[in-house]
Design a protein around this nucleic acid. Structure first.
Length: 194
DNA sequence: CGCCGGATTTAA
DNA sequence: TAAATCCGGCGA
């Protein structure tokens, strides 16, 4: 099944389908190992919970676009928009392994040496790719600029509650919409129970 | 290894 | 005023 079709489906399936896929920008190639699913206005943890705003507008767009937002006054977060056009949902990229371009990643992350956790966290992933506001809304399925492509077929997948959404109400708050490749060293904290 | 506070801008 | 976070410092 083509990636575009998976992204056009339910956000939970799209999230699982993104595990193992690759993000490419210039010389940097990352393998996605951890994601979180965020649905539309009905999901009280989602940026779409108050309806359409200037910030979350890309969430209503076509599947496969980027939704980037600024968080905690200093971090950019990369999401892949999912669902049909007009339906607001997106998948937050939370963790990745560096397949190529480690020197560039080290420079952007201001790290002295490689480590398994260099892209373990959503802020780290966007920073490693050099992403900010100007990449908001990009079509990731076009092979120019930032590109998303199929990769490794996932083995075992772990799931658990989403991180940093204590403000959401149940059942959204406890929903297991965080997914990660079992055994990957690039999964962010807190760890998902096996 | 786990907990805690500060950084720093924006959206609602 | 709190946020879909990160990092360094401190104590066990």
């Amino acid at each position: 099944m083509p990636l575009k079709r998976i992204l056009a489906g339910p956000v939970e399936d799209a999230a699982r389908g993104l595990l193992g896929c690759e993000l490419v920008r210039e010389d940097v190639v990352l393998r996605i190992v951890e994601v979180e699913a965020y649905a539309g206005p009905e999901d009280t943890a989602s940026h779409a919970r108050h309806g359409r705003t200037a910030r979350n507008a890309p969430m209503w767009g076509a599947p496969g676009r980027a939704y980037l937002y600024f968080c905690y006054g200093m971090h950019w977060m990369l999401n892949v928009v999912t669902g049909p056009e007009g339906v607001a949902s997106a998948v937050l990229i939370r963790g990745a392994e560096v397949l190529a371009g480690m020197d560039t990643v080290l420079a952007r992350r201001r790290a002295a040496k490689p480590s398994a956790q260099i892209c373990a966290g959503p802020g780290k992933v966007a920073q490693a790719l050099g992403l900010a506001r100007e990449s908001d809304g990009l079509d990731l399925l076009r092979a120019e600029g930032l590109h998303l492509r199929p990769g490794l077929t996932p083995g075992a997948i772990l799931s658990g509650p989403r991180v940093g959404i204590g403000f959401a109400v149940e059942p959204d708050r406890l929903r297991s919409w965080r997914f990660a490749l079992a055994g990957s060293p690039a999964v962010s904290r807190p760890r998902i129970a096996p």
